[in-house]
Simulated assay, not measured.
Amino acid sequence: MTAVVPAPTGARLGLRASATRLGLLGGLAVALAGALVLGAGHGQLDVPPSEVVGAVLHRLGLEWGPLPAHPQGESTLWQVRFPRVVMAALAGSALATAGALMQGVFGNPLAEPGVVGVSSGAALGAATVIVLGLAFAGTWTVAACAFLGGLVATLLVYLMSRDGGRTEVVTLVLTGIALNAVAGAGLAFLMFLGDTQSREEIVFWQLGSLNGSRWEQVSVVAPLALGGILAALLLAPRLDLLALGDRAARHVGVDVERLRLGVIVVVALLTAAAVAFCGIIAFVGLVVPHLVRLVAGPGHRLLVPASALGGAVLLVLADLWARTAIAYADLPIGMLTSLVGGPFFFWLLRRARRTAGGWA
């Protein structure tokens, strides 16, 4: 006699989903902690992981673990390595979260701050401050102008890519190409106007780098990035409803246009946080949400926090690669992310055409 296996109840399915959610987020959190320790310890002066952890615990007042044995070890960690890896984690989480939001609000897998020109717009705003020497907001001036540039670029993408109430993939990508071209021309013009120091800083923007990150810069980026991620977590449930379609979302009480505008502001905030001191770092917001979605599914309640953690892990490890790939050299991190993200984007285009039967 064949035994009948009862179907899983709603409670069991809920517990299973919660366990999967906690397992994924916990695994990413552990991976991030390991990446931070690894990134802080490796470089021209190697510090063992136990000494890295010991330096942090001693600073927190806990007498556990060895301090760095090298005479310059502790100063290297606190003045150079720690601000750099923290900046990498903040920028990576901000870009990945912005990518997850843009893919959700535009309803297609090709939306990403770098692809649609948001990063270039933010960099153009920051470069304007550099060349013109503006300082109306003190330390926050660069981040504020990067935010305005990213917001304008995002609004242009949103308005120009809509056709009959829906967003076309081709229109989105082509609008992003046009915005990138205009922003590139603006950056070139600013390079022409600026002095040698300004030109070097603008080149830094275009290549993307975490070299020279300091705690003062982290203190500017952290509230922008963490505030944007918190806002993204609050918007996540309504993005799941938006995936049902505009009409269905309106039937359950979602103000679709207000939601889209809110997401646009949050994306600009997150992109500005990442671009403000690190320059243009492309494709993090494209690659990470896709990889997370393959594991966790399309639900934004899990996709947004997992993308934030995954983006932090990716950029911390990419920065470690940039610092150690060639001895006594610091490669531009934007070059490395583009090296990986470019082929990934091409694969997505091919996959979208094959599965949808066209480019629309």
Score class of each variant (00 low, 15 high):
L224R: 01
L349E: 09
L286S: 07
I333W: 07
W359P: 13
W347Q: 00
A360S: 14
P223V: 00
Q79Y: 10
V295E: 09
L45E: 13
P305I: 00
V265F: 12
R247E: 15
S50L: 06
V173E: 14
A356N: 14
L339C: 11
G41Y: 08
A268M: 12
G61Q: 12
D330P: 13
S161K: 01
G92R: 07
A91N: 08
V170S: 10
L309Q: 02
V304P: 07
P71F: 03
G176R: 09
E168Q: 06
T141C: 09
R21C: 07
I202A: 06
V203G: 05
A40Y: 10
G41V: 02
F189G: 01
L193I: 09
A17L: 08
A274D: 04
A356Y: 01
H58T: 10
W140K: 00
R84A: 01
M87A: 10
A111T: 05
G299D: 05
A35H: 04
A96F: 01
L226Q: 06
G73N: 04
R258W: 10
L95I: 02
L230T: 11
A231H: 06
V254E: 08
A127W: 05
A69K: 15
D240C: 09
A98M: 08
S119P: 09
A137M: 07
V129A: 11
A231V: 01
L234T: 08
L62D: 05
A188R: 13
V105I: 08
V169E: 02
V129M: 05
L315S: 02
F147S: 01
T139S: 15
T139A: 15
E168S: 12
P305V: 00
L336Q: 06
N180E: 09
A135F: 02
V266P: 07
S213P: 12
Y158W: 12
A31I: 03
E257G: 06
T2D: 15
D46P: 15
T175N: 12
V47H: 07
G26P: 11
L132K: 08
L286F: 08
G138C: 08
G228M: 03
L15I: 03
L244I: 00
G73S: 11
G138V: 01
G285C: 01
M191G: 15
L291R: 05
D46S: 10
G227T: 02
T337N: 01
V86D: 03
W205T: 10
A3M: 14
S213M: 07
L244S: 12
L224V: 07
V5A: 12
V129L: 12
L148T: 13
L36D: 08
A17K: 11
S307Y: 02
G176P: 15
V170L: 14
A111R: 02
G262H: 05
A312G: 15
A231N: 04
L187R: 01
A352T: 05
V340C: 15
L224K: 00
E201F: 00
A276Q: 07
A268R: 04
I130Q: 09
G23R: 06
A268P: 02
